[in-house]
Simulated assay, not measured.
Amino acid sequence: MKKNVFQDQWAVCYDQSNWFVSLRNALDGLTTEQASWKAGEQTNSIWEIVNHLIYWNERYYDRFQGIAAWETSSKNDNTFAPIDGWNWQETVEKCYLILSKWIDAMENSEEDKLDGLATENLDYAWSSVLSNLTLHNAYHIGQIVYIRKQQLSWDSAKGVKG
């Protein structure tokens, strides 16, 4: 049962708009200039938000696959930094790839894994981690849509099914 819920949550975050717009819809047609745009110095660009999503989704995907967690930045703000040498399209494709991998991981995982501890260093069940991770994605997808509305690059026809 939990597995099915997480499969649905990952699919909605990735490419199946439902109660909120999927990331694929939120980024569709976005130019490099639009992805780089900031409303002010204290805000993040869409590109920076996508970098942040890649960082956290990949980090926990690796853990879910049994790969030891790699060294992390001491500041969450650093996770928004550009990935060296990547252009906007490469960044988008990397983000789509990791979300696609999560969908496959959910499909191929055993239900009881979701009740187990996420890692030896965390006292959280995978179900808790995955719940927070998908909510984290939804939160930032909302930010992306909001930024697109600010810059007048949002097509309201990309709405939700809810």
Score class of each variant (00 low, 15 high):
Tyr139Leu: 07
Ile147His: 00
Val12Met: 14
Asn108Phe: 08
Lys149Val: 04
Lys75Trp: 07
Trp102Tyr: 01
Tyr124Ile: 00
Ala157Val: 07
Ile103Lys: 07
Ser153Pro: 01
Pro82Asp: 15
Asp115Cys: 06
Asn137Phe: 01
Ala138Met: 14
Asp112Lys: 10
Leu152Trp: 05
Gln9Asp: 05
Gln7Lys: 12
Trp86Tyr: 15
Ser109Leu: 06
His136Ser: 04
Ser73Asp: 13
Leu97Phe: 10
His140Asn: 03
Met1Asp: 10
Ala11Asp: 10
Asn108Asp: 13
Ala11Arg: 12
Val12Glu: 14
Gly85Asn: 07
Tyr96Ala: 10
Tyr60Arg: 06
Leu117Met: 11
Ala26Phe: 04
Val92Asp: 00
Val129Pro: 00
Cys95Tyr: 03
Leu152Ile: 10
Leu122Arg: 08
Trp47Val: 02
Gln42Ser: 11
Leu97Val: 08
Asp8Tyr: 13
Asn108Ile: 08
Tyr61Gly: 01
Trp19Arg: 14
Lys161Gln: 10
Thr119Tyr: 02
Leu53Arg: 00
Ser74Cys: 08
Lys3Ile: 01
Pro82Cys: 09
Phe64Ser: 00
Gln34Asp: 08
Ala39Gln: 09
Cys13Lys: 00
Ala68Trp: 03
Leu97Pro: 05
Arg148Glu: 01
Ser127Glu: 10
Glu48Ala: 13
Tyr55Ala: 05
Gln65Ser: 10
Ala11Val: 09
Trp88Cys: 04
Glu41Trp: 03
Asn87Phe: 01
Ile46Trp: 03
Ala68Phe: 05
Tyr61Asn: 01
Glu90His: 08
Ala35Pro: 08
Gly116Asn: 14
Leu97Ser: 14
Asn137Trp: 05
Cys95Trp: 05
Ser156Cys: 13
Arg63Pro: 00
Ser36Tyr: 11
Ser128Thr: 15
Asn44Ser: 11
Asp15Thr: 12
Ser127Ala: 15
Trp154Arg: 01
Gln7Ile: 15
Glu41Asp: 15
Phe20Leu: 08
Lys158His: 11
Phe6Cys: 01
Ala35Ile: 05
Gly85Phe: 03
Glu111Thr: 12
Asp155Trp: 02
Tyr60Asp: 02
Ile67Phe: 06
Ala35Arg: 03
Thr31Ile: 09
Arg24Val: 13
Ser22Phe: 08
Leu23Thr: 12
Ser128Lys: 13
Trp47Pro: 03
Trp47Asp: 07
Asn87Arg: 04
Tyr96Gln: 06
Trp19Ser: 15
Ile83Asp: 09
Gly40Leu: 03
Trp37Glu: 07
Gly66His: 05
Leu27Glu: 02
Arg63Met: 11
Ser22Leu: 08
Thr134Glu: 09
Trp86Cys: 12
Leu53Gly: 03
His140Met: 04
Asn57Ile: 01
Ile54Gln: 02
Ser74Tyr: 07
Asp115Leu: 11
Tyr96Ser: 05
Glu107Cys: 06
Val5Tyr: 07
Gln65His: 04
Asn18Arg: 14
His52Gly: 01
Asp155Lys: 08
Asp28Gly: 13
Gly29Ala: 09
Tyr14Gln: 14
Asn4His: 09
Trp102Glu: 00
Gln42Val: 02
Lys3Glu: 00
Glu90Tyr: 03
Met106Phe: 02
Tyr146Leu: 07
Asp62Pro: 02
Lys101Gly: 11
Lys113Pro: 02
Arg63Glu: 12
Lys113Ile: 07
Glu48Val: 00
Gln16Lys: 15
His140Gln: 03
Asn121Asp: 08
Glu110Ala: 15
Tyr139Cys: 06
Glu58Pro: 06
Asp112Phe: 09
Glu120Gly: 13
Asp104Arg: 09
Gln42Pro: 02
Trp86Val: 10
Ile54Arg: 04
Lys75Phe: 10
Asn108Met: 11
